[in-house]
């Protein structure tokens, strides 16, 4: 009887996501051995991991800061909350193109502003060097997805009972101590959800890279999802694409749930 509560969700998720996954993965049998001798897979996996680690860390930090700010009683709080949400509301592919213009070496505003402020002496082709291209990609992603973290953590903070806050401030605890000894432990479940799903999204990053750098220069920003997409849709190599998908899904699952469990303060798996 109690299991009936799971039924609508189970039907939707397993029917719409589960079946296609099973069908795809079953097509990959016989191609799994090739995964181990695939040099491209190794290099794109490393790029993707580095990208996910750096950008998720930054997003969690900035997102937590923003959530704490937006939790304060300030004038026009609703407006500030809406503003904080805007990057998440903008279509990824279009903003990726926007970043491409912003980072352009000749007519981009990034160079123009840095030159005017004096931080740069000559224009940089941000997307044209392997190191700075990776940095630009992280910057664009952090900008875009910080609101995702902010919103979740803000909801988490709002669920912390107010009388607890008040009780502690009567005890004479300062705001910093209140945060670490009271809010943070209560915030852990929300942080775990945010970090788990941000990991999932970051490990599957595709649109942004595709438009911003196309994986270049010299493959330095090519990601796992792009490789899987190309194998399936451009190379029409369905068998190997299926094997790749299975490997990527499994690897990302272990990683995301591991990181999530660590943040929640539970044993991993």
């Amino acid at each position: 009887m109690r299991h009936l509560y799971l039924l609508p969700a189970a039907i939707l998720v397993f029917g719409i996501l589960g079946l296609p996954l099973v069908l795809t993965v079953s097509r990959g049998s016989g191609h799994f051995a090739a995964l181990f001798s695939d040099a491209t897979l190794g290099s794109v996996a490393l790029t993707t991991l580095a990208f996910a680690a750096v950008s998720v860390t930054l997003e969690m930090a900035i997102g937590l800061g923003f959530a704490l700010l937006l939790q304060q009683t300030i004038r026009a709080r609703g407006l500030f909350r809406a503003i904080a949400l805007i990057p998440w509301a903008l279509p990824t592919a279009v903003m990726a193109m926007s970043w491409r213009w912003i980072f352009n070496d000749v007519y981009g505003v990034a160079n123009d502003m840095l030159l005017k402020v004096g931080l740069l002496h000559e224009p940089i082709a941000w997307l044209g060097r392997p190191g700075t291209a990776f940095f630009a990609l992280v910057a664009a992603d952090v900008w875009k997805t910080t609101p995702f973290v902010t919103i979740i953590l803000l909801a988490g903070l709002q669920s912390v009972p107010r009388d607890l806050h008040e009780a502690m401030s009567v005890d004479g605890a300062g705001p910093v101590r209140r945060f670490f000894s009271l809010a943070l432990p209560l915030l852990r479940p929300a942080m775990a959800v945010a970090v788990t799903f941000r990991m999932i999204q970051a490990l599957g990053i595709f649109d942004l890279v595709w438009v911003l750098t196309g994986g270049g220069p010299a493959d330095s920003t090519r990601t796992l999802a792009q490789y899987v997409y190309e194998t399936l849709f451009r190379y029409l190599n369905l068998g190997y694409g299926a094997a790749l998908t299975a490997a990527v899904v499994l690897g990302a699952f272990l990683l995301a749930s591991g990181v999530g469990a660590a943040v929640r303060g539970k044993p991993v798996l």
Binding site: G204, L232, F233
Partner: peptide, 9 residues
Amino acid sequence: LALVPPALL
């Protein structure tokens, strides 16, 4: 299942 890439679907 959250990891299934939309392109695959």
